[in-house]
Design a protein around this nucleic acid. Structure first.
Length: 295
DNA sequence: GCATGTCGCTGTATCCTCAA
DNA sequence: TTGAGGATACAGCGACATGC
């Protein structure tokens, strides 16, 4: 962790072992100070892991930048610190070795003294970049709402830290038998038609069956069968005997692979991505968050 | 009227099927 | 085995429904 105190100019650098020795943050987080960070839910998650109390006042520059760019973000445009610095014309503060250092931090495990220093330098570059960032954004930041946003980020960090408890036995059972269940379903529906080879829908077999049944199926401009949801919806109205097959396709599509991240305590945790949507909502991944899965 | 949840549409990335 | 074409997965978002 690296922290920089604007008032005194003091910079604090601590690696994980040293941090574990502190019962409270080694810098002022009381009512007469303001803690500034970018995507602060990560920092607040660190506070929670260390058993530290949250700072009284928190300003998340990510939230303020996100607010500033709302409606002007291009398709696929990132809101990372690097992208934000670039957009604000602060390119000279972007750390040069970012990707390499990110890989090193994600590697985990044992770090040599030299690697520890490199990682702290990397963190420090990010922290120091927040100084001009804050200066640039300050005229557009309204104190009251920004501090409320900071409070919300603390709540998000708490939710991310707590996670959602899962029935681990049931989840394990489902995960183990997921493919078998799907295969049984295919076999039951496809018993008499034989369109499937395992999970694969064979268009040729389906085409032969259509000829046999004298059914005229919609074609794409290329001449191949149109097999999207819309075509199936239309055709099952005309040929109700295909309803079960249409439902099977939908069910197989909904029963995608289970890949919920789960901690050793049986809890599902993932980034809740606060303020990611245009309307300010959270937008967690639909595949990694339990409540994002299909009902 | 507001907050929240659900559904469906759109664009992009990725996967799957099939023919060469 | 590989590349092309098509389908599906996923994210993002707004419209609409529902409950308070």
């Amino acid at each position: 962790m690296v922290a920089h105190e604007l008032r005194t100019g003091r910079t604090l650098r601590c690696f994980s072992k040293e941090l574990a020795g502190h019962r409270v943050p080694p810098f002022n987080c009381g009512g007469n100070s303001l803690v500034v960070a970018y995507f602060a839910s990560a920092e607040m998650g660190c506070f929670l892991s260390l058993g530290w109390p949250f700072p009284v006042h928190l300003l998340d520059l990510y939230v303020e930048y996100r607010r500033m760019r709302n409606g002007t973000l291009g398709p696929g445009e990132s809101t990372s610190l690097v992208a934000a610095l670039a957009w604000l014309g602060l390119q000279r503060f972007i750390p040069a070795q970012k990707d390499e250092m990110r890989e090193l931090s994600l590697r985990g495990g044992f770090y040599t003294v030299e690697e520890q220093e490199q990682l702290l330098d990397y963190c420090q570059a990010d922290v120091m970049a927040l100084k001009p960032f804050l200066k640039k954004l300050l005229p557009d930041i309204s104190g009251g709402p920004a501090l409320l946003d900071g409070n919300y980020i603390k709540a998000v960090a708490l939710m991310e830290h707590t996670g959602v408890p899962l029935d681990t036995n049931l989840y394990g059972l489902l995960k183990r038998h997921w493919k078998t269940m799907k295969l049984k379903l295919v076999k039951r529906v496809d018993k008499e038609t034989g369109f499937y080879d395992g999970f694969s829908f064979r268009r040729e077999r389906f085409s032969q069956w259509l000829t046999q049944e004298n059914i005229s199926w919609p074609l794409l401009p290329s001449g191949t069968l149109q097999l999207d949801k819309e075509a199936w919806k239309r055709m099952t109205k005309l040929y109700p005997q295909l309803t079960q097959h249409a439902q099977l396709r939908e069910t197989l599509s909904a029963l995608k692979e289970l890949k919920l991240p789960m901690g050793s305590d049986g809890r599902n945790r993932c980034l809740l991505s606060p303020f990611k949507s245009k309307t300010g909502r959270n937008q967690p991944s639909t595949t990694r968050f339990i409540f994002g899965l299909p009902a």
